[in-house]
């Protein structure tokens, strides 16, 4: 427990560094894509995608750390790990779907964006079903 907290405090500085890195990448991406927006809109879209990817790669370590922390907490709270893993999966599917839908909407294709979001929602519903079943089981056991 104590070691977990101490690593959290150690990583505060790291997180600050990561934050400023992300802000810098964002500003560079916006400036470069707005330079090319008028002459070549296809390239500005690709620059935007690249900026998003780089920000995600910067965030990977933080996300891993966060999920480790959540797993630690849920272990102590006696919540079954299958529930936590399905929540994590839902977050992942949501992120990827949002990424694709944003790319489609950025390029002006709202139809495809909406369909991608619909697909993501259905996938999420299917993935969240074990949690709903668990909830119903809990309710039935209470009755």
């Amino acid at each position: 427990m104590l070691s977990c907290f101490s690593t959290c405090f150690e990583q505060k500085g790291e997180i600050k560094k990561l934050l400023f890195k992300i802000l810098g990448v964002g500003i560079v991406t916006v400036i470069l894509s707005s330079i090319l927006k008028n002459s070549r809109s296809d390239f500005s879209l690709l620059i935007n995608i690249c900026g998003g990817l780089i920000i995600f790669y910067i965030l990977i370590d933080g996300i891993t750390e966060l999920f480790d922390g959540i797993g630690f907490l849920s272990e102590n709270a006696n919540i079954s790990s299958s529930i936590i893993s399905s929540i994590v999966k839902v977050i992942g599917v949501g992120y990827v779907t949002e990424f694709c839908a944003d790319i489609a909407e950025d390029s002006g294709n709202k139809f495809v964006a909406n369909k991608v979001i619909l697909g993501g929602k259905i996938a999420l519903c299917v993935m969240a079903f074990p949690i709903i079943r668990y909830l119903f089981q809990t309710i039935i056991s209470l009755i």
Partner: peptide
């Protein structure tokens, strides 16, 4: 994986323009 890939893409874009 770094910021340089954004600069690379922008450079290719300006060059082709």
């Amino acid at each position: 994986m770094g910021v340089e890939i954004i600069f690379k893409i922008a450079a290719i874009g300006i060059l082709t323009t």
